[in-house]
Computed example of a mutant assay.
Amino acid sequence: MCDECNHRAEINPLRAFDCKNPQCAEIMEGAPRITDHLCDDCREHYETVKRYLTASGLSFVEDTRLVRGLDYYTRTVFEVQVDNGMGSQNAIGGGGRYDKLAKEVGGRDVPGLGFALGYERCVLALEAAGVEFPNASTLDLFVACVDDSVRERAFSLVQECRDAGIATEMDHQQRSLKSQFKLADKLHAAQVAILGPDEVAQGCVKLRNMETHEEQMVAFDELIKVLCQ
């Protein structure tokens, strides 16, 4: 191993996967895969992340040798790439989770997640894809969860609406239903889709107009059509 990798081994041995030295790269080809040595909690967390990615319709590739250039990451790290002819410059961003960083710098012991995007690369990728930015608008829809059992379905529903050009949000802090409505009102949501176990079983949401307070049951496959009327 090169001198830099030997030094890194004392701090973060995973950084050796990022070494550009051909000899180090050859050695690391035979290194154990980190996914084969996860504890039960980390494995459950990792599988949950993958389920949410699948639920949102995002394709992903598992890379057991992916590392970031900073040593404070814990659990999952990621890199965002585009496939539009940008060649080796197709990585437009990356980041990961850092559960211990806030405490290490003197703050509260709270988990964190962050990422960085390359502005110029994002612009190039959007131009290559022919994307036009929509005008800023108020929130079209807020998806409210009755309980945690429907969060994955709510998450995928949010993604489906966003893909259709509908400005959509949901709660990510496990607030009560009442608090979710307060958040929807604060965000000036035009409508709220209420989703609970009964609605999931019936394949529908209860859609409430936040101005008139009128409610109607709308099937999942009809929701986008109703919102676009």
Results as ranks from 00 to 15, higher is better:
residue 152 E to P: 01
residue 203 G to E: 13
residue 137 S to K: 11
residue 116 A to F: 10
residue 108 R to A: 12
residue 184 A to D: 00
residue 191 Q to R: 15
residue 77 V to S: 10
residue 166 I to E: 08
residue 77 V to N: 09
residue 167 A to M: 06
residue 68 R to D: 11
residue 87 G to H: 07
residue 209 N to C: 10
residue 188 H to Q: 13
residue 83 D to A: 13
residue 71 D to W: 07
residue 141 L to K: 03
residue 169 E to S: 13
residue 122 C to H: 06
residue 166 I to G: 08
residue 159 Q to Y: 02
residue 89 Q to I: 03
residue 204 C to N: 15
residue 127 E to Q: 14
residue 205 V to P: 02
residue 180 Q to R: 02
residue 163 D to F: 12
residue 75 R to N: 10
residue 164 A to E: 14
residue 202 Q to F: 01
residue 72 Y to N: 12
residue 87 G to P: 02
residue 160 E to G: 00
residue 142 F to H: 09
residue 63 D to L: 05
residue 208 R to M: 11
residue 200 V to C: 14
residue 162 R to H: 12
residue 117 L to F: 15
residue 175 R to V: 10
residue 114 G to D: 08
residue 126 L to G: 01
residue 161 C to W: 04
residue 75 R to H: 12
residue 176 S to V: 05
residue 145 C to H: 13
residue 154 A to S: 13
residue 160 E to L: 08
residue 139 L to G: 09
residue 161 C to D: 04
residue 170 M to S: 12
residue 100 K to G: 08
residue 139 L to P: 02
residue 158 V to H: 01
residue 95 G to H: 11
residue 148 D to T: 05
residue 71 D to R: 09
residue 96 G to F: 00
residue 67 V to Y: 06
residue 63 D to C: 08
residue 65 R to H: 11
residue 85 G to K: 13
residue 95 G to R: 09
residue 102 A to T: 12
residue 210 M to V: 07
residue 190 A to I: 04
residue 137 S to P: 00
residue 74 T to V: 08
residue 175 R to T: 04
residue 122 C to T: 15
residue 91 A to I: 03
residue 147 D to Q: 06
residue 178 K to F: 03
residue 190 A to V: 05
residue 185 D to P: 00
residue 195 L to R: 10
residue 70 L to E: 06
residue 105 V to S: 03
residue 189 A to V: 05
residue 116 A to G: 15
residue 137 S to N: 04
residue 130 G to F: 03
residue 164 A to M: 03
residue 99 D to H: 09
residue 124 L to V: 14
residue 192 V to H: 07
residue 125 A to Y: 14
residue 175 R to S: 11
residue 129 A to R: 04
residue 165 G to H: 13
residue 63 D to I: 02
residue 113 L to C: 14
residue 206 K to N: 13
residue 183 L to R: 05
residue 120 E to S: 14
residue 115 F to P: 03
residue 76 T to G: 04
residue 80 V to L: 10
residue 186 K to E: 04
residue 139 L to I: 09
residue 73 Y to V: 00
residue 138 T to G: 14
residue 166 I to M: 10
residue 117 L to A: 14
residue 63 D to H: 12
residue 167 A to L: 14
residue 97 R to D: 00
residue 93 G to D: 03
residue 134 P to T: 01
residue 193 A to T: 00
residue 203 G to V: 09
residue 97 R to T: 06
residue 102 A to D: 01
residue 100 K to Q: 13
residue 99 D to S: 11
residue 184 A to H: 02
residue 86 M to A: 15
residue 165 G to Y: 10
residue 141 L to I: 10
residue 174 Q to F: 02
residue 177 L to Y: 09
residue 97 R to L: 05
residue 191 Q to W: 15
residue 144 A to G: 06
residue 174 Q to I: 01
residue 74 T to R: 04
residue 117 L to C: 10
residue 109 D to R: 07
residue 99 D to Y: 12
residue 126 L to D: 04
residue 178 K to M: 01
residue 146 V to D: 00
residue 133 F to R: 15
residue 115 F to E: 08
residue 93 G to M: 03
residue 104 E to S: 11
residue 175 R to A: 09
residue 106 G to H: 01
residue 176 S to D: 06
